[in-house]
C-alpha cells in the first residue's frame, strides 16, 4: 500500500508538494520553451526541406553513373566521377576560372569600394546624389548588366571603349573574344563595387569621432590616422564584404551566359555543371560530382566566414 503511494496524494508531506511544484514548473518551462521555439519552426523546416535535402540527393547522384538523355539506368560507381574530374581538362579549366573570377572580382571591388567610400565620407556638393548614382549598378539586373557591357561598352563596332580608343589612334579590340574572363570580371567589379562601398561606408560612419578629433589635435597626419585608426576600425566591415562577396561571386552564372555563353576561357564550375547537365549534357552523375566540388569549396570559405561572423556576434546577447 505505502510503496505505491501516488504523487498527487492530498495528504502528501511537504517534500512531495515541493516535487509537485517543481514538476509543474518544469512542465511550464518546457511549455515556455516550445512557445519560444514555435515561431521559428516553419521557417526552419521550410529551409531544411528546400535547401538541405537536395544536397543529400546531389551527394547520392555524384556516386552514380546516370544520364537522363538518353535515359540510362542509374548505376552505383563509387567515387569514379570524382577521380574522372582530375583528368578532365575542361573541369580543371572551369575550376581555375572559378578561382580567378571570384578572387579577382572580390579583391578589386573591395579595393575600389573602399576608395570610393572614403571619397563619399566627406561633405561635398551633391553627396547624396553621387551616392545614388554609385549604388545603381548593384540594383541592375545582372543579365542586363552583362548585355549592356557586352554590346554597348566592349563591342568592337559600336562600343564606347573602342570609340575612345579610336580617338587616340588605337585599333579596335574585340574585348569579349580576346579577354573573355577579364571582360566578365570587369562587369562583376562594376556591379559589386557599389555593394562593397556601402558596407565600408557604414563602417566609416560608425567611426568614433572623438578618437579622430583627439588624433588630429595630437598632430597625427591623415595617413597615420587612416592606417592606425580607420583601417583597424574597418576590419570587420572589410571581412563582411569579402565574405558576402565571395559567397555570391563563386556562383556567378548570369553574366557568363550573356557575355560569352561559356567556353574554356570563361566557364566557371557552376556554368560548366549547367552545360554538362540541364544545358544539354544530361550527364547528371558527373555534373553532380562537379557541383559537390563547388559545395566543398564553399564550405571551406564558409568556415572561414562563420568564424568572422561569430566574432561579429560576440558579446551581443539579447536574452
Amino acid at each position: 500500500m505505502t510503496d505505491t503511494q501516488p504523487d498527487t496524494a492530498p495528504d502528501a508531506g511537504p517534500d512531495t508538494r515541493d516535487e509537485e511544484r517543481a514538476e509543474e514548473r518544469r512542465h511550464l518551462e518546457r511549455r515556455e520553451k516550445w512557445i519560444r521555439r514555435l515561431p521559428l519552426l516553419p521557417a526552419l523546416l521550410f529551409t531544411i526541406v528546400i535547401t538541405q535535402v537536395p544536397f543529400v540527393f546531389s551527394l547520392f547522384y555524384s556516386l552514380t553513373d546516370w544520364k537522363i538523355i538518353p535515359p540510362t539506368p542509374r548505376t552505383f560507381i563509387g567515387f569514379d566521377n570524382f577521380t574522372d574530374l582530375v583528368d578532365n581538362q575542361f573541369f580543371r579549366d572551369a575550376a581555375w576560372v572559378s578561382v580567378v573570377m571570384t578572387a579577382s572580382a572580390v579583391l578589386l571591388s573591395l579595393i575600389l569600394g573602399t576608395g570610393i567610400a572614403l571619397l563619399l565620407d566627406r561633405k561635398f556638393f551633391g553627396q547624396g546624389f553621387v551616392r545614388t548614382l554609385l549604388i545603381t549598378p548593384f540594383l541592375v539586373m545582372p543579365v542586363v548588366a552583362g548585355l549592356v557591357w557586352k554590346n554597348q561598352v566592349f563591342s568592337s563596332q559600336y562600343g564606347v571603349i573602342n570609340w575612345l580608343l579610336n580617338l587616340v589612334g588605337i585599333d579596335n579590340v574585340e574585348f569579349v573574344t580576346r579577354y573573355p574572363l577579364w571582360s566578365i570580371v570587369i562587369v562583376l567589379v562594376w556591379e559589386w563595387t557599389p555593394f562593397m562601398m556601402l558596407i565600408i561606408l557604414a563602417g566609416l560612419q560608425g567611426q568614433p569621432t572623438d578618437v579622430l578629433e583627439a588624433a588630429r589635435v595630437d598632430g597625427a597626419t591623415n595617413r597615420a590616422i587612416f592606417f592606425q585608426i580607420t583601417l583597424p576600425h574597418l576590419k570587420p566591415y572589410l571581412e563582411l564584404g569579402t565574405l558576402l562577396g565571395s559567397i555570391y561571386l563563386i556562383q556567378v552564372f548570369d553574366q557568363i551566359e550573356v557575355i560569352t555563353g561559356g567556353g574554356p576561357d570563361s566557364s566557371n564550375i557552376p556554368f560548366f555543371v549547367f552545360q554538362r547537365s540541364i544545358g544539354g549534357g544530361w550527364d547528371f552523375g558527373a555534373a553532380s560530382a562537379m557541383s559537390i566540388v563547388v559545395v566543398i569549396a564553399s564550405i571551406v570559405l564558409a568556415n572561414l566566414g562563420l568564424r568572422v561572423l561569430s566574432g561579429l556576434l560576440e558579446g551581443e546577447d539579447p536574452a
Binding site: 520553451k33 519560444r36 521555439r37 521559428l40 521557417a43 526552419l44 529551409t47 535547401t51 538541405q52 535535402v53 537536395p54 544536397f55 540527393f57 546531389s58 547522384y61 559567397i247 563563386i250 556562383q251 552564372f253 564550375i269 557552376p270 555543371v273 549547367f274 547537365s277 540541364i278 547528371f284 555534373a287 553532380s288 557541383s291 559537390i292 563547388v294 559545395v295 564553399s298 564550405i299 570559405l301 564558409a302 566566414g305 562563420l306 561572423l309 561569430s310 556576434l313 539579447p318 536574452a319
Partner: peptide
C-alpha cells in the same frame, strides 16, 4: 524572446546561403 541557442539557429540560416545553389539544382530539377 530569443530561444536558447539563437546564435546556432541564426548561423544555420546564414550557412544555407553558403551552399551554392548549383549543388542543389539537379535534384531540384528532378
Amino acid at each position: 524572446r530569443p530561444v536558447r541557442k539563437w546564435r546556432d539557429v541564426l548561423f544555420f540560416f546564414i550557412s544555407t546561403k553558403f551552399l551554392p545553389i548549383v549543388g542543389a539544382i539537379l535534384p531540384l530539377w528532378i
